[in-house]
């Protein structure tokens, strides 16, 4: 069991100036091999200009069963959006 090769999550920056985006995972013995494997697997067709690898066990996710209580409160707060406020057209863009 303890001899399993660790799992890594791979994040790629598609273009200069953009954030890294999760694109998949892979197994590798350490971060050097993980970066190498990520380059060979995920950037063969110009998909990116920079790679981050993160041990999968370092990532903690929210509980899908709690999605409703976590995220629904953000849906009905219309006053967090600019369109909620009445600004007459004559005032112009604001």
């Amino acid at each position: 069991m303890s001899n399993e090769t660790p799992l890594w999550e791979v994040f790629i920056r598609p273009r200069n100036g953009l954030s890294h985006k999760h694109c998949g995972s892979l197994h590798a013995a350490d971060e050097v091999l993980a970066l190498q494997a990520a380059r060979d697997t995920y950037t063969r067709r110009g998909e990116g200009v920079s790679i981050w690898v993160v041990p999968s066990k370092a990532i903690f996710a929210s509980d899908p069963d709690q999605a409703a209580e976590n995220f629904e409160p953000g849906v009905d707060k219309v006053y967090r959006h600019p369109t909620f406020y009445d600004i007459p057209e004559e005032v112009g863009h604001m």
């Binding site: 006053y79 967090r80 959006h81 600019p82 909620f84 406020y85 009445d86 600004i87 005032v91 604001m94």
Partner: peptide, 13 residues
């Protein structure tokens, strides 16, 4: 930020 300015201006209106 875009709602911040509008809510302020609405108060003044």
């Amino acid at each position: 930020e875009s709602f911040h300015q509008r809510q302020g201006y609405e108060i003044l209106i």
